[in-house]
């Protein structure tokens, strides 16, 4: 029973991080119909930024976190401007190949720059655990879950009520019509990339502070699972990404606890195939056909 509770808490904590990353995938997919392969690597980038600010520059935690999230968000937007925007209207496979290229580029640039400390260790953000009804939960897990939930709620409100949020929904529905209505599509796309990347950066900070070890290639595996979470919930649907993230985290954690670490990934992957067979539009998705 103890194992079960531990795995559940662990799963929810990891799942909330998946959810943050899945949000970025889903937002970008919703707006430019691109699987942004480089999105997962933003987690890695923000972890390394954080490590540098803390260990090399000696900045205090809050400032270091703020800076790494801001820089990672900017990086997401820069990638979009330089690599994806020029390919609007090109065959989709070309954009996809570019995205893969950007992902590998980020991984290998960081592997090259941080050759000596690879993998690098992180200072602790929060130590210790709290005790709730006889179950001990690490403080960092509590923080992770809290921060993720707060961010998700904020994002939902942002998309529902602000002008920028309305613009995002309009562009994802029909970018041509949105442009005719006076919405600046380029700005909206950039904003989407910044917000999505910043969320992934927060995920990176939380992840790095939990596991305390980072390496340049950690983003791709993490990104893949977050993407599966986005598909599970229904790609392009914001609440779907959150639900998908939590389910993924819990399933993976239980599989690791009760089956085996090596086959946990296989189980997670099997889920993806099963969804695509039976409900390709995801748990919250509706089947919509392409316009002809």
């Amino acid at each position: 029973m103890n194992l079960f509770i531990d795995q559940m808490i662990n799963g929810i904590s990891v799942g909330s991080v998946y959810a943050l990353v899945a949000l970025g995938y889903t937002m970008v997919y919703g707006i430019v119909k691109l699987i942004n392969f480089a999105h997962g690597d933003i987690i890695m980038v923000s972890s390394y930024f954080l490590m540098v600010f803390l260990r090399k520059a000696g900045l205090p935690f809050p400032l270091a976190i703020l800076l790494s999230v801001a820089l990672s968000g900017a990086l997401g937007a820069i990638v979009e401007k330089l690599a994806y925007k020029p390919l609007r209207g090109a065959p989709r496979i070309n954009v996809l190949i570019t995205a893969i290229g950007v992902s590998i580029l980020l991984q290998n640039v960081f592997a090259w720059v941080f050759k000596q400390d690879n993998p690098a260790s992180m200072p602790a953000l929060l130590d210790g655990a709290i005790n709730i009804g006889g179950v001990s939960i690490s403080k960092i897990s509590v923080l992770t879950i809290l921060v993720s939930v707060i961010l998700m709620v904020t994002l939902s409100l942002l998309i529902k009520y602000t002008k920028m949020g309305k613009a995002m929904r309009a562009v994802s529905e029909d970018s041509g019509a949105a442009a005719l209505m006076g919405i600046n599509v380029d700005t909206t796309v950039s904003a989407t990339f910044i917000i999505g990347s910043a969320l992934a950066a927060v995920a990176g900070v939380l992840f790095a502070s939990t596991y305390r070890l980072i390496n340049p290639f950690m983003g791709s595996d993490f990104g893949l699972k977050a993407f599966i979470a986005a598909v599970l919930g229904g790609i392009g649907i914001i609440p779907g990404a959150m639900i998908g993230g939590f389910i993924m985290g819990v399933v993976e954690s239980l599989a690791k606890g009760y089956v085996s670490t090596i086959f946990a990934d296989t189980i997670v992957f099997t889920i993806l195939i099963v969804i695509l067979i039976f409900k390709p539009s995801g748990l919250l998705g509706k089947n919509i056909k392409e316009k002809v």
């Binding site: 690599a83 020029p86 390919l87 070309n94 290229g101 950007v102």
Partner: peptide, 11 residues
């Protein structure tokens, strides 16, 4: 990776 990106952009 640089090659992939450049080929696609040039194309």
């Amino acid at each position: 990776s640089i090659l992939l990106i450049i080929v696609m952009l040039v194309k």
